[in-house]
Design a protein around this nucleic acid. Structure first.
Lengths: 259, 259
DNA sequence: ACCTGAACACCGTTCAAGT
DNA sequence: ACCTGAACACCGTTCAAGT
């Protein structure tokens, strides 16, 4: 199901948008000049002019290929154009800029993530399952981390997961406002885990300056920092363990207990 | 106290390192060629050659100025060189590359953060206070967020905070391993909050595509996503509220309860 | 040892023009 | 309407040379 339900936000002029101001009223500042001045003789919605060679979907698909194959750093407008057999500037007719492309990519990916079948009935367990599902889907692709900071996600196609979390928290006794705040807390924790872990993995892969933390920990003063000195030897092993679900459970438990 | 205790990791050749392999044994891959081949006649540690015009501290200080004044995006090696009255390449004699500079910057900033005086005696409250202190220190500077992903922080000078958290969790009954995992969970939550919030703020400041989320929420199908439809009108207001401490308390409560 | 100058190999994006 | 070509205004970093 490739992003069938993802809304085409900021689609260039061809989206039959229901809200009038999204298409004509107050377009984003950057696009305003272009949209208003560039096509002075487009009097009607007729399909006039050169037929398109590539579509927005083509762009997103090609971008996803690059990112999956070679990482998000390899995604440049120039390479993307080359892969599509066009020029860099042709892309700008389909996406506003690179950041929009990244958000589109994230949406597209979230839409393709599997919705877990048979979520538990118990509210807390349901929250845990939904959060873990979106976490696992995102954590599976390391490039997500770098895109995450470009959007607070939870946009468009990931809303189903958000619904499950908010619903579960409500069923567990939280007020609607508390449930939204609870969802946000879960999202902070989840996004943070993905980002921190992805960075650590990148660091490890580069195998550059690998001994920095060890260096710091080796120089610990047991008198000043006794606890850290005590766990210094095990730190690497302990932090390498995947404890996402444990922390998630603690957070959700605390949210429900503190209602 | 400008990072007096911050270790000079990867300082170029002049650091009298105690661990032999940090200075000579296995230098990072990138630097290996340069370090091994560039100075064939440096037979002793004598201060020979041209006297330095700028120091590593100068570089970090100038970088901090730029970042504080104009944001992290304005920090380029070229501008930094201009501000220091040198050439871009002179900088590379003091820092390995730009990423190291960013990490140095983060360290430097964390070292300058105020340690809260009079931490509470109660273990849970102590954990909350320490975590909130590091959170507030980092959240005060928006550029931190972008640097955070370049390091898992908690390095060097921020260790005091880590000690407080691990100690508090231990005093609350967690095992050393549980305390480390708990600290990690708190760090995920904290880093995630800062990152997500900073991105949202950036988005708002750009006032570009401001209606995307509203657009998505306006198109919600109440039959499919009833909870979200119910809170759609209040979403912006609810998520604008600062609930970092509430979520933190829930997390810590859950960690202690689940021990 | 420390610094400079010039160059390399890129970026994202604008602008004016073509069909 | 859609695409092209050339250019702008940058990047971080390497390399060879100077003092």
């Amino acid at each position: 199901m490739p992003h069938a339900s993802a809304p085409q936000h900021d689609a260039p002029r061809d989206s039959p948008d229901t809200t009038p101001d999204a298409a004509a009223g107050t377009p984003p500042a950057k696009a305003r000049g272009k949209a208003g001045e560039k096509s002075p003789r487009s009097t009607a919605r007729k399909a006039v002019g050169r037929p398109p060679r590539i579509s927005r979907d083509d762009v997103v698909r090609a971008a996803r290929r690059i990112v999956d194959d070679a990482g998000v750093d390899a995604l440049t407008m120039r390479r993307l154009a080359t892969d599509l057999g066009t020029t860099p500037m042709a892309l700008y007719h389909h996406v506003r800029d690179k950041e929009e492309l990244l958000v589109l990519l994230l949406d597209d990916y979230a839409a393709g993530a599997l919705r877990p079948t048979g979520l538990p009935d118990d509210p807390v367990e349901r929250v845990l399952a939904a959060a873990a599902a979106i976490h696992d889907a995102l954590a599976a692709r390391p490039w997500i981390a770098q895109v995450l900071t470009a959007d607070d996600l939870m946009a468009a196609s990931a809303l189903w997961y958000v619904e499950q979390v908010v619903d579960g928290l409500t069923a567990a006794g939280l007020s609607p406002a508390q449930a939204v705040h609870g969802y946000r807390a879960i999202w902070y924790y989840t996004a943070g885990e993905i980002l921190v872990r992805a960075t650590a993995a990148r660091r490890r892969a580069a195998d550059d300056r690998p001994t920095y933390r060890e260096h710091v920990f080796a120089g610990l003063d047991p008198a000043e920092l006794p606890r850290l000195s005590g766990v210094a030897a095990d730190w690497a092993e302990l932090t390498a363990q995947d404890t996402y679900r444990d922390g998630l459970r603690a957070l959700v438990t605390g949210l429900v207990a503190g209602r």
